[in-house]
Design a binder for these strands. Structure first.
Lengths: 237, 237
DNA sequence: ACATTAAACGGACCTCGGTCCGGTTGCCCT
DNA sequence: AGGGCAACCGGACCGAGGTCCGTTTAATGT
């Protein structure tokens, strides 16, 4: 259970100033993933934002910088919360107040990369972006995510601490919505919502990493598998 | 890294005496999941078995009993290793020497249930068992696993502590082999090995639990989704 | 300027998983 | 029988995540 999770501070979907976006879900377990705006059909932040105090904002930034540095130099898995606090010359409590827990911090670290990916399939060029037909986008989506996760695998791995919390993060939520939308547009038959979950299951960081490193599969094979899967699902019954 | 993992003591696939089966993989990361025997095409234990000393065996049994009791009364997630040791009147070190880590203990606890499930689809009656056509078995497999995991969800959840280790457990390995075999027999086209991983991804305890409890889906829906998926994959291109 | 207050701060503290090592004991071999 | 030894035992110990609470401070209103 949490103590005072002022949200992971990750807006993820906003394109505006990175300084103010503060998701502050009150009680921990409630992640209201409803909502949707007209433009992209995607919106997550629970809008109960709360401006950070100046010193808090400063600390937050410094913490993220320091954390990124440490993660880069010794691997995300080998960075302790205490070392981050120490390196940022800040009390341990401050770290936890800001990011809730280790997962939250990692998620916040990922925020930058995540935005990049999101921009790619939300507003980027075809075949990922909105100017391509839905099926093509769907096909491109898998490989894009896989490559992305593979490139930052240590961070993504470190960001999925909890066993169940894995499916309640902003990135996951967003991908889910996106994939669902694409499936709808592709007129894929069947339980679209469920299908989206299944497809995303394939893109799970842990699984991809496992297949790549333990099973000796290569990215190309996974991509081919994705395309094949999408094609077969897309076929009308 | 491990210290002295005398294996989780789970044989899982053996039907013989439960007392001696001791998988003791020397170095931790090597889980040689090769092998296969003529009868079922399934075999896992790395065969470097080592008979336990009498007192060790006694302790192991008592630990499992006690652990099961505690898990039943207060939920697997709320059982600490120390409390188990204390309740079994044994030092903490003993617990870890025997089961390696928390995950190992949980896995060992699961062993019993797991055997049951395995027996069902390895030697049980149709449609799960060997006397049914492969496609029917495949269809029956998903729901069976889902129901099973759902029934013991707290244990299964607790058993997948590590982020990556999830895909290297005996149960997972066995299911993988089984599903692969069924896919082959069903003459499903495409990358069968990869498909098996994807299908198993759907059956992931965490995902099932999430869909059931957070997304408000019901078991029937998941089962229907599984059947639909299998059917569509089975269709020839 | 100053009072007020909610938010932020820091670090002592707690818990729990996991490790180490000095002492003990079951097992095998002669 | 008894000696040697590997396996086993217990519990002190450690590190890391997470919490609590007394103190400080930035923002806001007068």
């Amino acid at each position: 259970m949490f103590y005072h999770p002022t949200g992971p501070g990750s807006t993820f979907v906003h394109r505006s100033v990175t300084l103010r976006g503060m998701t502050s879900s009150g009680p921990p377990p409630s992640v209201p993933y409803e909502a949707s705006d007209g433009r992209t059909g995607l919106s997550l932040t629970s809008c109960t934002e709360r401006r950070l105090r100046a010193d808090a904002e400063r600390n937050r930034t410094r913490l993220l910088e320091v954390a990124a540095g440490l993660a880069a130099e010794r691997g995300a898995a080998n960075v302790t919360m205490e070392s981050i606090a120490a390196a940022a010359q800040v009390g341990k409590g401050t770290v936890f107040r800001r990011f809730g827990d280790r997962t939250g911090l990692m998620l916040a670290l990922l925020d930058h990369h995540e935005r990049q990916l999101q921009a790619a399939f939300l507003t980027g060029p075809p075949p990922l972006g909105p100017d391509a037909p839905a099926l093509a986008r769907l096909r491109a989506f898998g490989p894009a995510v896989m490559r992305h996760e593979h490139r930052h695998s240590d961070l993504y791995l470190a960001a999925q601490g909890a066993p169940d919390r894995r499916y309640s993060t902003s990135p996951h939520e967003l991908r889910l919505t996106h994939i669902t939308m694409l499936l709808r547009r592709t007129k894929v038959p069947g339980d679209v919502e469920l299908l989206a979950h299944i497809l995303l299951g394939f893109l799970d960081t842990g699984l991809v990493h496992h297949l790549l490193t333990q099973r000796g599969m290569c990215l190309e094979r996974l991509e081919a598998g994705w395309n094949d899967l999408v094609d077969r699902l897309g076929a009308r019954t």
